[in-house]
């Protein structure tokens, strides 16, 4: 089937079998290999992408279901080649990762959280990342990274991004 996707603000027309999951489509058809597959049954969160700004499992969605949505993958988070977003930079600052396999999902989850809740509590952060399994860090430095990013975003002069469907 032919599907018209909107990934990272670019239109992409792909030919996929109906059974192709969004994560396989992103990786195999579009070459966006920053989205990882860990379990392919919706538990680990390694395949997290943003759909209309909200985190979803790309392994729990078929590519043919994805037309018409704005999809964001980790490749679109850095503002420029070699330049990190505030969230990405905070992950580097606190070493909120080790092997890097769950990291794209964690970063996207954090980006979405901080757009919804600019000043999250520890419980908010834990709840947001609880859908993403990390086997390396024990989550401590990930929580620190997101809290640090929130602090830096609050002090930055970046325009607040508007969450789709939410009042600005």
């Amino acid at each position: 089937m032919k599907v018209e996707l909107n990934v990272n603000n670019a239109r992409a027309s792909v030919e996929v079998e109906p059974r192709t999951t969004l994560v396989d489509c992103l990786r195999d058809n579009l070459g966006l290999t920053g989205t990882h597959t860990g379990c392919e049954h919706g538990i680990c969160g390694a395949c997290t992408v943003l759909l209309e700004g909200e985190p979803v499992r790309a392994c729990l969605m078929l590519a043919v279901q994805a037309d018409g949505y704005a999809i964001t993958t980790i490749e679109a988070v850095a503002p420029a080649p070699g330049e990190l977003s505030i969230v990405q930079d905070a992950f580097c600052e606190t070493h909120g990762l080790q092997c890097g396999f769950c990291t794209p999902g964690m970063v996207l989850t954090a980006e979405a959280l901080l757009r919804r809740i600019p000043d999250p509590t520890r419980a908010d952060i834990v709840s947001a990342i609880s859908a993403n399994i990390c086997r390396c860090t024990g989550y401590g430095q990930i929580v620190e990274a997101i809290a640090l990013a929130a602090k830096r975003l609050a002090g930055s002069n970046l325009p607040r991004q508007v969450v789709p469907g939410e009042p600005a």
Binding site: G42, L51, E54, P55, V56, R57, L60, S130, A131
Partner: peptide, 8 residues
């Protein structure tokens, strides 16, 4: 579930 599954 959790937030990402509730989103879908």
């Amino acid at each position: 579930g959790h937030a990402p599954t509730r989103n879908r």
